[in-house]
């Protein structure tokens, strides 16, 4: 049959074309995921030597207060950043959907934080909060006289967490804004006109028209932010290495001080399970590929 040959040829070509990409992904993502599980049962050195220790990595981890502390820090970080980026993104989308002068320039400018490399903005943020020269301390101490002492907000892990959250909101609200604005522009105008005729004011129109229309996209934004921020490393570590979210705790376990690569593998296994659950939710509920 000619058609079955065609189908076979198409299948062969398809496999050939995906082979390099899928091969690399299989070797360097799928295999490492399982290798990671394997490593989590060993005491692993940086030079590669391994000793089987069964479940010790897990029991050590569950008895380690630093682990629970970093889970707590991660939860605060996630709550702050997810709520912050979504709310600011929504506000920015509603604002940028209005007509005003220089709108295109404003729309471009608010994307800057998202596009800028983390490394080239963290030092600017550190300077803003610098105890000696920073504008933050200048405003709080010298202008507003809220306190008498200049604080090193980033030097203290407790306050640094909030600087990190603010930084993350600043850096990532534009992607939430882009997703929400795209949807907002497709909301039919007559819905607003109908609501206006019903006597709704601006707030009522936002509440009864905008929000219900955006519900689905907002859910997407929230879920995506949780997935990305659960693994976020650079933005936190480079700004304030003393804020120990889970990824940073893992990094310290694996590569700093007393190296415990097996322990780090165990943390990653647990975290991956959580992540898989979230991704499953995302693929089921949100995406069609």
């Amino acid at each position: 049959m000619a058609s079955s040959i065609l189908i076979k040829n198409e299948a062969r070509l398809g496999l050939k074309l995906v082979a390099p990409a899928i091969g690399i992904i299989g070797l360097l993502v799928i295999y490492p995921i399982f290798f990671n599980v394997y490593l989590s049962f060993f005491d692993v050195q940086l030079n590669g030597s391994k000793t089987f220790i069964g479940l010790d990595n897990y029991s050590d981890l569950l008895a380690n207060p630093r682990y629970y502390h970093s889970i707590g820090v991660s939860i605060i970080y996630l709550l702050g950043t997810v709520i912050g980026t979504t709310v600011l993104g929504l506000a920015a989308a509603v604002l940028m959907n209005q007509e005003f002068h220089f709108r295109n320039i404003a729309r471009g400018l608010i994307l800057l934080p998202y596009f800028a490399p983390v490394i080239s903005v963290v030092f600017g943020w550190q300077f803003i909060f610098d105890p000696v020269n920073g504008i933050y301390n200048h405003v709080v101490v010298d202008v507003l006289h809220l306190t008498d002492t200049r604080e090193n907000l980033i030097g203290n892990p407790d306050s640094a967490l909030f600087v990190v959250i603010l930084f993350d909101i600043w850096k990532h609200f534009p992607i939430a804004y882009l997703l929400l604005l795209a949807k907002l522009q497709s909301v039919p105008k007559d819905l607003y006109e109908a609501a206006a005729i019903d006597g709704q004011n601006a707030w009522g129109r936002f509440w009864h028209v905008t929000l219900p229309e955006l519900k689905f996209v907002i859910a997407t934004v929230v879920l995506l932010r949780i997935i990305w921020n659960l693994n976020r490393f650079e933005d936190v570590y480079l700004l304030a290495p003393n804020v120990e979210t889970l990824p940073i705790f893992t990094y310290y376990q694996a590569f700093a001080g007393i190296v415990d690569q097996g322990g780090a593998a165990a943390i990653s296994v647990i975290q991956l399970l959580v992540l898989v659950g979230l991704i499953w939710l995302y693929v089921r509920k949100v995406l069609k590929w």
Partner: peptide
């Protein structure tokens, strides 16, 4: 899609090893 959401942090130990 799944792979693209698995962050690098989760793979750093196995990839290094």
């Amino acid at each position: 899609l799944f792979v693209y959401m698995v962050g690098g942090v989760l793979l750093m130990v196995p990839l290094y090893q």
